[in-house]
Structure formats: structure tokens, C-alpha cells
Amino acid sequence: MTEPLLAVENLCVDFATRSGPVRVLNDVSFTLAPGETLGIVGESGCGKSMTSLAVMGLVPRPNGRIASGRILFRGEDLVRAPARRMRQIRGAAISMIFQEPMTSLNPIFTVGRQIAEAIRLHEDVSKAEVRNRVVDVLGRVGIPDPARRADEYPHQLSGGMRQRVMIAMALVCRPQILIADEPTTALDVTVQAQILDLILRLQQEENTAVILISHDMGVISQVSDRVMVMYAGRAIEKGPCRDVVEASAHPYTRGLIACIPDIDRTERMAESDRLPTIPGIVPDLRALGETCAFAPRCALADAACEAWKVAPIRLDDAHVAACRKAARGIVA
């Protein structure tokens, strides 16, 4: 395998709270190759967004900090990179799209001006050239009549349009990595599909690597090359999309997949009449130790699970799961 574009190694992020430090990311590792799509799934608070913020160097200060680990972008460790260098990388080499297109645009400037600023922050180009690129990128993200739309304010655009503008802003400097943090969650289902298609099309045109973050296993399984499932700050299963979705090794992953509504699985629906859910709630991160955080909610857990020190277990070349039972083939 060639050298990955991005390699996150044993990343740990701590947050200081009144009741002591809380580890919100625990020993997270993954790699990303050029042009690849990595899907990160998990429930709220499992560390998906924190992972992306850590890569961007935007872990909230002063109460959050990267406790250990490395984030290697083309061999350069971003954890140790000075603030100046991080600003050069942000928006130019690694860009990010946020969840809320309604509030992620500055309400008092035209969208064209905001995209122009994104260019000017990183490149020294003439005014006319900037304008050309703004109109061009708006056209590429599928905004009709881009020259006119560039002079409109965010409140004059619909949610889907605004998300297109956000994508245009993120892509205008041709980044090598695009982090999309729940890019479609706030949108209508029909618009969701359009936005996902758009991201994938632009990805192919530029060979951009994409990290797609979602709580929706359905979205992730449709578009990802590889998938990482997170739970309570840990990556509990990762591997090629097919393996993780069709041969899930971790009981939590199986639970997530069972939660996807599926018209084809009518027999299963008939059995219970209800969509399956995972019982219990996400554990309190302060109370976690080195043992399996999912054990209290896991239908398969036994006494040995409670004592088992969590470690990734390699199922084959690329497929890894952090479940004791996965190792023995009990789950599979």
C-alpha cells in the first residue's frame, strides 16, 4: 500500500470537567488514502465530530486537548504543527463542511463574498480571477445562475442551496481531504441524496479524500469505501464497507445496521412490527475504564466481557473489531 494521505495514530483527546478529566477520544487510529471515502458512524457523543475537529486542529480550547497520539498528514504531524501552519492547512489542504447550513454562513455578507474570502485567505489572486472562480465553483456545485446567486445573501437561499454553498466554500481551494460532518442531517431526504451525489461527484473529479461523518448507517453504507464505527470515544469496528455492513463483527455495529429501515426485509418487520432498537443509553464517559463500554447494553455480553480489557482484534487483513466474542467467532 502506498503511503496514506492521512494517518491518525492512537489519538486520545481529553476534556477537563469539574469532576476531573474525561477521555472523549480513546486510542483512535485510522488511515485515509487519496480519493477514498471513510465513513465514521456512531451515536451522539461517541466522538465522531471530535475526531474531525482534532484533525482540523480545532479541539475546543482551553478545556479540551489532544492528550496523546499523532495525526500524520502526508507524514507531517499536525498535533505538533504550529498555529500558523495549521491555518495554512485548514481550508486549503483539509476543508470541512458542517451540519447546519442554515447557520454556518455569515448572515450579513453575500455568499459570493464569503467564498471569495475563502480563496483570498490562502491564495494571492486578482479580484477578477477570484470572481471567476467563485462563479465557477458555484456552478460546479449545481447552483443555477451562479453569477446572480453569488450576490445573494444566505437568507435568500434554501437549506439545500446553502449546503451547496458550504461545499463550494470547502472545495474552492481544491483540498486533498474534505471532512463532511453530518452534511445531510439537516436536509430533506430528497435533498440529502442530491448533496451526497454532489460530494461524491466532486470527489471523483478532484480525487479528494472524504471523511463522511454521520449517525445514519444507511447513508454511510451507501457511499463509503471503508467504515469506522465509534462508541464512547473508541473505534470499535473498522474495515471495508462491505465487511462491516454485511459481516459485522461487533454487536453494536449489528445493532446499528438492524436499525436501518429496509423495505426488502419485510419478513423481519412482520415478526415484530417494529424497527429494532439498541436497548439502553450511551454510557457516562467519566465512568469508563479499560473494559468494553458496550457490555452493559450488549445482549451477548457475559461475565468475562466485564473483565476483558478492550483491544482491537484483527479478523482479516483490513477488518478489525474491538469485541472479545468476535475473536472466537461467537458473533459471526
Partner: peptide, 17 residues
């Protein structure tokens, strides 16, 4: 803490800006 401020930071803007 507004989203557009976060977005601006993610674009590589410095504090002064």
C-alpha cells in the same frame, strides 16, 4: 460559538480576522 464563526476558523482564518 456561532456555526459561521466555526466555519470561518475551519477555512483557516486567523483570530484577528
Amino acid at each position: 460559538n456561532m456555526d459561521y464563526v466555526r466555519a470561518e476558523r475551519a477555512m483557516g482564518a486567523r483570530d484577528r480576522r
